[in-house]
Simulated scan of single mutants.
Amino acid sequence: MATETAAADHGAEGGGLVFHPMDQFIVKPLFGEGEVHWYTITNVTLWMALAVLAVFALMVMMTSRRATIPTKGQSIAEMAYGFVYKMVEDVAGKDAVPFFPYVMTLFMFIVFANFLGLLPMSFTTTSHFAVTVVLALAVFLTVTIYGFMKNGAHFLNLFWVSSAPLPLRPILAVIELISYFVRPVSHSIRLAGNVMAGHAVIKVFAGFAAIAIISPVSIVAITAMYGLEVLVAFIQAYVFTILTCVYLKDALHPGH
């Protein structure tokens, strides 16, 4: 570690290119310095709070004075509402409509957290597994608990592939059970991994922009990657939400 630090310092002193794409994901105290504890207010706390405030501003403040001819803010809020409502109804069925407020909250928080993370000098909270794992576990526990509450022991039909030949059913049941408990892992890693990878690539290209010879190419690459990340910010929120709807459908209608 000391050797690597010395080499980095030597490169910096010699005018070499030294940058660390992963530094942007470091959790730091918002006030002062020192260790981060569970009660410490950090940059993650700040940007999560800003995401919540942004959702509140759009969905509450922009729609508080609803009009027949909507404002731009009201139009965006209504489009988001209709988009998520149709997703819940189409994927999980009308029985899942009572869960719409929860699914809507998930979608809006993730999409705003992703977009706020694209601002200069910001922090992308959804790039941290600590955030996405909590979101995924909340979905997993909600679906599992409600599945047993609604269906009782019949919820276990989710793991029993009745359409398969009888000798294969126990094997498939084990595979289905493992797949079910892996859900929160894949659900969280998909979101955090994609967001983190895109931001790291942008930082790499930004580091190369300091070199005069390849600066124009690097700037074009940054612009292209930034445009792609804007699309990814929405797509990853959509994927997380639609998977939540799929899991809700399993809780409401277990069985193959």
Rank of each mutant, 00 (worst) to 15 (best):
V60C: 07
I26D: 13
T5M: 13
V97G: 00
F56S: 10
C245A: 01
L166A: 15
G93E: 03
L137G: 07
A206F: 04
F240C: 09
V143F: 07
V161H: 14
T241A: 05
H154N: 10
T132K: 05
S75G: 06
F123L: 05
E229D: 07
F115E: 05
W160L: 11
S75A: 14
E35V: 00
V84D: 08
L46T: 03
V131N: 06
I211M: 04
T142W: 12
L158V: 00
T3G: 05
S162L: 07
T45E: 09
L30S: 13
N43E: 14
R66G: 15
F25A: 13
H256S: 08
T126V: 15
I213F: 02
Y180D: 14
T244Y: 13
G255S: 00
A7E: 12
V161A: 15
V232C: 03
F159M: 06
D23I: 02
G255D: 10
G11M: 06
V111H: 05
V161G: 06
L252R: 01
G152P: 00
M48C: 10
L53D: 08
N194S: 11
T124C: 08
Y39Q: 12
V220D: 08
M59N: 09
V60L: 12
L135K: 02
P101V: 00
R169Q: 14
V36R: 02
F140L: 02
T42C: 04
A6C: 02
T132V: 10
A237R: 02
N151Y: 04
F100S: 06
V161P: 02
A251S: 11
V131G: 02
S75P: 01
A54S: 14
Y238F: 11
W47Y: 15
S215R: 03
H128P: 01
G227D: 07
N114F: 07
L118A: 03
E35A: 06
L231Q: 03
L50I: 15
E13I: 04
T40I: 00
R65I: 01
G207E: 12
T144Y: 02
F83P: 07
G32Y: 13
F123T: 03
L248W: 04
L141G: 05
K28G: 08
L135M: 08
P167S: 15
L53P: 00
I171H: 09
F107V: 10
K86A: 15
V111I: 14
Q236F: 00
M61C: 12
T3D: 11
D9M: 05
W38P: 03
I69N: 09
N114E: 06
F112A: 12
I76Y: 09
G15Y: 10
E33H: 13
H199W: 02
M87H: 06
G147M: 00
R190L: 10
H10F: 06
G117M: 08
P98W: 14
L106A: 11
Y226V: 04
L106D: 09
P70S: 02
L106P: 09
I214R: 02
T244D: 07
S163C: 01
I214K: 01
I171C: 01
L252H: 03
Y180G: 03
M104W: 09
I211F: 11
